[in-house]
Amino acid sequence: MSKPQIAIVLSTYNQPEWLKKVLWGYANQQFKDFEVIIADDGSTAETKTLIESMRPELPFEVTHVWHEDNGFQKTIILNTAIKAANAEYLLFSDGDCIPRNDFVAVHAAHREAGYFLSGGYFKLPMDISKAITQEDIAQQRCFDVAWLKAQGLKSSFKNNKLTTNAAKQKFLNWITPTEATWNGHNSSGWLSDILTANGFDQRMQYGGEDRELGERLFNAGLKAKQLRYTAICVHLDHPRGYVKPEMLTKNAAIRKTTKTQKLTRTAYGLAAEKA
């Protein structure tokens, strides 16, 4: 059996209803040569049950990697997912981000040696997040601004993120003041580059843990392509009870060291070099 071109790594933690909608999103992709690896940071059996029940209806291979719940350990389970990947190119997103049907195709089309790709997301309020059905995803209504406004979405410049006009996408990507960084909800890169960087720093918890990998890739000479208005996914709302100030402080210190010492590799990653 041939290897898929792309491995999609989805992080999740106790959000089976959101994960179900996200998997429906990947079932409707235009580009189909991919596998999905679910990086599960300690969810209860409900998530495993959902994945097993959906396997027969999904047109792609699903690998579920899991470890016991011991607080926010996303970086550790992401590294486990990287080890499970069969593809040479990895696309990272979250189990609460529904991809538009051209999402994987956009990443596939823009991949290039010496680069990683940086996309964004479009945040939805809770009521619309709950209202989205399988049919809404199949018909792509949840990416249509007119439909979303009919559900109560407020007018905003950010609604331009959902544009399907290629020229407008290119212009907005060019003018955006947002830097192209490694964003855990929408970034992709070559497995070889990620392995050279030794994956995610497993000391890091919530707050910039994804961007720190990108900062090491930058230090190694890679560049980033801005796909903020091109690679589109909608983010389903949820509370963030796991955020603690000490996590942010620790992560900021690690990122500062990465930047000041221009580190290209972590000693606390895929291949553990330090205890």
Rank of each mutant, 00 (worst) to 15 (best):
S2M: 13
K3Y: 11
I6N: 05
S11L: 14
N14A: 01
P16F: 01
L19G: 05
L19Q: 00
K20N: 05
N28P: 02
N28A: 12
F31Q: 12
F31H: 12
I38H: 07
I38Y: 07
A39R: 01
D41I: 11
D41M: 09
G42Y: 06
G42W: 04
T44S: 03
T47H: 03
S53K: 07
R55E: 10
P56N: 12
E61M: 09
T63W: 05
H64W: 10
W66Y: 08
D69W: 09
N70F: 13
N70G: 14
K74A: 13
N79S: 09
A81D: 00
A81I: 05
S93L: 03
D94Y: 07
P99V: 05
R100G: 06
R100Y: 14
D102L: 10
R111P: 01
E112Q: 15
A113F: 09
F116L: 09
S118C: 10
G119Y: 10
K123T: 08
I128R: 07
S129W: 01
T133A: 09
E135Y: 15
D136P: 04
Q139P: 00
Q140T: 13
C142W: 00
L148Q: 11
K149W: 03
K149L: 02
K149N: 02
Q151M: 14
Q151F: 13
K154I: 12
K154W: 08
S155G: 14
S155D: 15
F157P: 12
N159K: 04
L162R: 10
N165I: 13
A166H: 05
A166E: 06
A167V: 11
L172A: 09
L172Q: 09
N173G: 04
I175F: 12
E179C: 08
A180Q: 13
H185E: 09
G189A: 15
G189T: 07
L191W: 04
S192Y: 02
I194M: 10
L195G: 02
F200M: 11
Q205Y: 06
G208L: 08
D210P: 03
R216W: 07
R216S: 02
L217C: 03
L217D: 06
L217T: 04
F218D: 03
F218P: 02
A220L: 01
Q226V: 15
C233I: 02
V234A: 05
V234M: 11
K244G: 02
K244E: 05
M247G: 01
R255S: 01
T257Q: 13
Q261E: 15
Q261K: 15
L263V: 08
T264F: 02
T264G: 00
A267T: 08
Y268H: 15
K274H: 14
K274A: 13
A275I: 12
